[in-house]
């Protein structure tokens, strides 16, 4: 039996390799989620019934079923319709599409929380609807929704662990593999848990707080 120190020496490189994949999945997942969230939020607020309906359906379907089911569907069923995705793409795409549906509600809530007077002032000043959204409403909404987005990004980081189940070689996958060759379960899974925790608390949370500070400073000055 190896001591924990020897275990780390032997297997940390493999776990770190997995961590890099997890970070890649997280970053790409965030990109998809933000895009989907903004698009679906605006669709759900659209004045046309058909567009609004599509937004609502998307959000309800992706929030109403499991991410794991969605991921398997994208990976195993979409090829039957002629869209074959490699596992890496299917992984972050499923994560992003799923968390994006949750994000859409945050975006919508943020925009609707901007006081009515801000709209009226922008109309009175003769801004076009697009400028009004881009320069007046959205920046204020963004500041309001950053804290819940911080929580959502941690959910997204955690959700990427599921890509291991379609054999993307992320941190979760590596720890599972180390467990099955060494039977040192506490060490393998425990170390992976700690790495996830470090990413969440030392990268995601401070990063979001920094973003919030920068935005609030920018809004109060300019």
């Amino acid at each position: 039996m190896l001591t924990y120190f020897e275990f780390i020496q032997e297997y940390l490189p493999a776990l770190l390799k997995g961590t890099v994949v997890t970070l890649e999945q997280t970053a790409l997942g965030i990109l998809v989620a933000v895009l989907v969230a903004v698009i679906m939020a605006f669709m759900k607020m659209a004045p046309f019934f058909a567009i609004r309906w599509f937004g609502i359906a998307y959000i309800e379907v992706f929030r109403g079923t499991s991410l794991l089911v969605q991921m398997y569907w994208i990976f195993f069923v979409l090829p039957l319709f002629g869209f074959t995705l490699d596992k890496f793409t299917a992984g972050f795409l499923a994560v992003g599409l799923n968390l994006g549906a949750y994000g859409a509600e945050l975006v919508r809530g943020g925009i609707q929380a901007v006081p009515r007077g801000q709209y009226e002032a922008a109309v009175a000043l003769g801004f076009s609807p697009f400028t009004r959204m881009r320069r007046i409403i959205f920046p204020q909404a963004l500041l309001k929704m950053l804290p819940p987005w911080g929580n959502l990004l941690i959910e997204l980081l955690k959700a990427t662990a599921l890509v291991a189940l379609i054999s993307v070689t992320d941190l979760m996958f590596m720890s599972k593999q180390i467990n099955s060759t060494t039977f040192m379960s506490a060490q393998a899974f425990g170390t992976a848990l700690i790495i996830y925790y470090i990413i969440a608390r030392l990268i995601v949370t401070p990063g979001m707080r920094g973003l919030e500070n920068r935005l609030s400073r920018k809004l109060s000055i300019g």
Binding site: I154, L157, K158, A161, M172, N179, A186, G190, Y196, R201
Partner: peptide, 18 residues
Amino acid sequence: RSTPLVLQIFFVFYVGPQ
């Protein structure tokens, strides 16, 4: 709260026998 549930499930299941 900040670690994946699937990893926690594996942890509980496999660390017990150890």
